[in-house]
Write a protein that binds this DNA or RNA. Structure first.
Length: 260
DNA sequence: ATGTCACTTTACAAGTGA
């Protein structure tokens, strides 16, 4: 089984690259974030031609998440109980026979001390509480998406420079650890201990070219899935300006392969 | 720290969020 997560920064802008990725990787599950697309405008037809069902929770202009799958989900849930920002389309749960998949787009937070930063921490607290009250670590569950948090120093190109900044403050890292403590594994860390693996590079200042990246896109899985990890990699090529049709997202896809 | 991108609107330029 292959699971992908990708913050596409507009499904409309990234559709040619997404379709190419489906052809190239043949994933079973794809979690998308920042689709920036109302549900009725989602490109369902092009995806159906590739054999994918698209479960969507979108809105105009901002946010928006989706789960693509070869099999139609048994049920869907948009948002979660006690979401502090219920008007923002940031979380979608799709249930299948073999597993449950959550696609999440965590609040960016802008800067330490910004009201959005406090909302980010509260959102992650509420998410953990909902997961703990809804699921079991014994069941096959995936929580994948843009966490807007780099978990550890090895996930940051310049840890000393980033320490205490947005995406790499201790309160944010504590929230990610709380999810791991509940019973998730960071699937990439089941495959490799290497540092310097990044999933996001700022569009500005030539950050990608300079290697100024962070690993903030994660695929978390409970043990029934984490125990089956064969490989987890980042498709950095998707971040290159001329690698595909159209401009790149500022995020690269994360691709996990699990034993069947 | 900021050399961009995608989106929106009392739209052909400027503000916003990231």
């Amino acid at each position: 089984m292959r699971i992908v997560t990708w913050n596409v920064n507009s499904i409309k802008q990234r559709l040619p690259r997404l379709l190419a990725l489906l052809d190239r990787e043949a994933p079973d599950i794809v979690c998308l974030q920042e689709t920036k697309c109302p549900d009725e405008a989602f490109p369902h037809e092009q995806l159906a031609e590739r054999g994918y069902h698209a479960a969507t929770y979108g809105q105009r202009a901002y946010n928006g998440v989706a789960v693509l799958s070869r099999e139609a989900p048994l049920s869907l849930e948009r948002g979660f109980t006690a979401d502090p920002t219920p008007d923002e389309a940031r979380l979608l749960t799709a249930r299948y026979d073999a597993l449950t998949v959550i696609s999440a787009y965590v609040i960016n937070g802008r800067a330490i001390g910004d009201p959005a930063y406090e909302r980010k921490l509260a959102w992650l607290d509420a998410l953990r509480a909902w997961i703990a009250g809804t699921f079991s670590p014994e069941e096959p569950l995936v929580l994948a998406g843009d966490f807007n948090v780099a978990p550890e120093a090895r996930d940051v190109h310049d840890p000393a420079g980033w320490e205490g900044s947005i995406h790499f403050s201790e309160p944010e890292r504590t929230r990610v650890r709380a999810l791991l403590d509940w019973g998730f594994a960071d699937l990439l860390r089941r495959h490799t201990t290497d540092g310097g693996i990044f999933t996001w590079w700022d569009y500005r200042a030539g950050a990608f070219h300079k290697g100024w990246g962070l690993r903030i896109d994660l695929i978390l899985g409970t043990e029934p899935l984490a125990g089956r990890v064969e490989e987890v990699r980042v498709d950095r090529n998707e971040r290159r300006p001329k690698a595909g049709e159209g401009a790149p997202s500022d995020h690269a896809p994360v691709i996990a392969t699990l034993a069947d």
